[in-house]
Amino acid sequence: MTSKLDAVLHQRGRAGVDFVVHLARGASGLKAAAAADLAAAVPDPAALPDDMDRRHAHMAQALGGSRANRVSQLVGEWHAQMHGLLAREAYEEIREAVDPVLAQAQADGPCTLEPATGPMPSYWQGVHFHRTAGGWDEHPMQGYIHGEIIHKRLVEALYPGGIFKQRREIAARAPRDHYARILDMGASTGHFTHALQEVYPDAQIVGVDWSLRALEHAQRVANTHGWAWQLYQRGAEATGFDDASFDLVGSYILLHEIPADIIRATFAEAFRVLKPGGDMIMSDVTRYADMDKLGQWKADAGALWGGEPFWRESASLDLAQVAREAGFVDVTASGIYPHVVQGRKPA
């Protein structure tokens, strides 16, 4: 389905973004060689050091002789540095045509957006999550660049149908057929919010996120569909909403972007704002407890070089236990990726 927000790129920008996809696909032989070297270097993952930092040092030494591994690091580093810049370049080529469309989409419609008035938290301010050039908010159109170019052209090409299909499936897992009022924690550019609205078309949806640029694009998405989302530039850990004011609280792949203490506060906040009997559904990345030591190292290395400061402490948490500690009952945790935790506030 097409939308007036779709990024219709010019040749240079399109080919530049597509090259990132080609780089991933064309590296298949390299990846196979690197995997073979890795298997030879680590015949017994259980023997790897328990401490993750020591494990990184061990692996650096074990793989030091692998050219395939060094080139693989180069490819990963180039991707990390360039994907945001190439997407930005693609936007700059079409901005004259697209800016008026985006301005109108943001201004005309029922969705509201309230910017923050206070300072951003230290765990967010200045951090280039995913090593996106300039972070989430430096470029004035970063929400559009990330939501429409990086996600819909680049990520979707590498995981066809995957990321949006996953969001709809997770949204549909909430136990009731209807929810009057839903809070999306970490709404970003509105991808999970969109899924929630599709699954629960009559629901009033409220979204919070620290990124104003991302929320601006969520507002465009909502207005384009005629959805009256209420968006706030606030943290999930302290939303400021009334006690017992939501029927469902959810998040999708937010938790690994925040420190462990903020994750605990986020579950407590979800519990506070839910009505008695209300449902919670939080999804995040694969738990380290569900991997062997080599898998943990791979995930941790990806985080280390991929602009994910809080991945390790987040993925090391037992989210079901965190949910129970926050007061939730009937807590379940399932799935490798995404890992989905559900619970209910007692009636």
Binding site: R67, R70, G126, V127, W305, G307, R312
Partner: peptide
């Protein structure tokens, strides 16, 4: 190698990542 520390999350923005070395020059 550099061990990054989440108490300084902006250090993850531009980590000193080892990639190629002098052995790779010919290739």
């Amino acid at each position: 190698m550099t061990i990054l520390d989440p108490s300084n999350p902006t250090a993850y923005n531009h980590p000193a990542r080892p990639t190629l070395n002098e052995v790779d020059t010919g290739a």
